[in-house]
Computed example of a mutant assay.
Amino acid sequence: MELNVYLAGEIHSNWRSEIKEKAKSLQLPIQFYGPMENHDRSDFIGEEILGEQPNAIFRDDAASSINNLRTELLLKKADLVIALFGEKYKQWNTAMDASAAISQGKPLILIRPEGLHHPLKELSNKANVTVESVNQAIKVLSYIFDKE
């Protein structure tokens, strides 16, 4: 069995690489997907495809429609979603992706530090598993494949 896992969350740190490297070192049969990690490309994909927009609002709207399409398709392909909430960035996209996963009936592992327990309590209650670190999420993934 191979799992398709969508990694939802901020694109400013290397948490996705950490999960991918740890899964690979454990030889877990997982294919990972996620949002466009090149921040500039994500922000300007609308203009790259549709041409120059008249202002920042139109530029953001054009990019978000294309990014939302990408996310919707990859979330539908996912067997499992891991959503990471860190303390540094505003994470509306992460909340939106985690909520979409829940509404689609996708199993969800929520990673959030203890300090975000209160603001994420409802979302955490809907997730299948809530952990506080990438290492704990990897242990959950590894357990899925344990035979004993």
Rank of each mutant, 00 (worst) to 15 (best):
E2K: 08
V5Y: 00
V5G: 03
Y6G: 09
Y6F: 14
G9E: 10
E10C: 11
H12K: 10
H12Q: 11
S13F: 06
N14D: 15
N14L: 13
W15E: 08
S17C: 00
S17V: 00
E18Q: 07
I19V: 14
K20M: 14
E21S: 10
K22A: 14
A23K: 05
K24N: 15
L26G: 04
L26A: 10
Q27L: 15
L28D: 10
L28N: 05
L28S: 04
L28A: 08
P29Y: 01
I30V: 09
I30C: 03
I30H: 03
I30T: 03
I30M: 03
Q31H: 06
F32T: 05
Y33D: 07
Y33E: 09
G34R: 08
G34L: 13
G34E: 11
P35E: 14
N38R: 08
N38Y: 01
N38M: 03
H39G: 04
H39K: 13
R41N: 06
R41E: 09
S42D: 11
S42E: 14
S42K: 15
F44L: 10
F44I: 00
I45G: 12
I45C: 11
E47N: 13
E48F: 12
L50H: 14
L50C: 15
G51H: 09
P54S: 10
A56R: 14
I57F: 00
I57L: 08
I57N: 01
D60S: 10
D60A: 14
A62I: 05
A63P: 12
A63T: 06
S64K: 15
S65C: 07
N67A: 15
N68R: 14
N68M: 10
N68W: 01
N68L: 11
E72R: 14
L73Y: 00
L73P: 00
L74Q: 07
K76G: 10
K76N: 13
K77I: 00
K77M: 00
A78V: 10
D79P: 05
V81C: 09
V81M: 08
I82M: 04
I82Q: 05
A83P: 13
G86V: 05
E87H: 04
K88H: 13
K88E: 15
K88P: 04
N93F: 07
T94K: 14
M96Y: 08
A98G: 12
A98D: 08
S99N: 10
S99L: 06
A101S: 15
I102V: 15
S103R: 11
P107L: 07
P107A: 12
P107G: 07
L108D: 05
L108M: 07
I111M: 02
I111C: 02
I111R: 01
R112F: 00
P113I: 06
E114F: 03
L116E: 08
H117R: 08
H117T: 09
H118F: 02
P119A: 06
P119W: 01
L120Y: 05
K121P: 00
L123T: 10
K126C: 04
K126S: 06
A127M: 02
V129L: 11
T130C: 14
S133H: 08
V134W: 00
V134H: 02
N135K: 12
Q136C: 06
Q136G: 07
I138T: 02
I138K: 02
V140N: 04
V140E: 04
S142H: 01
Y143N: 09
F145D: 02
D146Q: 08
D146A: 01
D146I: 03
D146F: 03
K147F: 03
E148R: 09
E148G: 09
